[in-house]
């Protein structure tokens, strides 16, 4: 069944730099869904990661800025020390509220606010990480009818985050990083069959 999506959200922690390079590096510059990313990062990390990824990927990658409009062909990274949220109307915002799931930026905060705005038109992706951030957020995405993708724990540098996400909700796809860009392309173009298992209450 063809289906249209409005955005992809990605949560990643330990091993994230390499994982993001691989995933984003395999997407074309004209990938038409915006990608919003929380990579766990220290409070004083600066914006080096966005620059590095931007240089190495065809896709445009930037650190999210105040009032950024969410545009296709662009990946937005949450800045250090702020939660990244999605506003209705397709804009980004920040919060300096306390840590959620022991993290700021927190994957759960991004996923929950994106699910609120995009509902079933959202794809949530949980990648490698040594904690459980993102599992509650992925559950919310599923409850609102979105699609959940998790990196195969066997393929992940740290398996806890994918495992926690799989334990929290009935995910649609579990696969190695290598196949993930192709899957996103298929989903984005409406060519992938979407399993509706565990779609939850709407």
């Amino acid at each position: 069944m063809a289906r249209l999506f409005k955005a992809v959200v990605v949560g990643v922690s330990t091993g994230g730099v390499l994982a993001l390079q691989k995933l984003l590096g395999q997407l074309p510059a004209d990938f038409h869904l915006p990608i919003l990313i929380v990579q766990h990062i220290g409070p004083d990390a600066g914006s080096g990661l966005a620059k590095l990824l931007d240089e190495r990927c065809a896709l445009r990658v930037k650190e999210a800025d105040e009032q950024d409009e969410i545009l296709p062909g662009t990946a937005y990274l949450a800045p250090p020390n702020y939660h990244l949220l999605v506003e209705r109307g397709g804009f980004l915002s920040f919060s300096a509220d306390p840590y959620v799931s022991f993290a700021r930026p927190s994957v759960d905060v991004l996923f929950e606010s994106a699910a609120e705005v995009f509902g079933p038109e959202l794809i949530g992706v949980v990648l490698t990480g040594a904690n459980f951030d993102g599992s509650r957020g992925l559950m919310t995405i599923k409850q609102k009818g979105g699609v959940a993708i998790v990196q195969d724990p066997e393929d992940a540098e740290a398996r806890q985050m994918p495992q926690a996400a799989m334990a929290a909700t009935d995910v649609d796809y579990v696969l190695a990083l290598d196949g993930m860009a192709a899957l996103l392309l298929k989903l984005a173009s409406g060519r992938a069959a979407i399993s509706h298992k565990g779609t939850g209450a709407r």
Binding site: L85, V86, E87, S93, S95, D97, V109, S113, E116, V117
Partner: peptide, 9 residues
């Protein structure tokens, strides 16, 4: 107030 944060709070 921005919707996303006030909704969380």
């Amino acid at each position: 107030y921005a919707d996303a944060s006030i909704r969380r709070r």
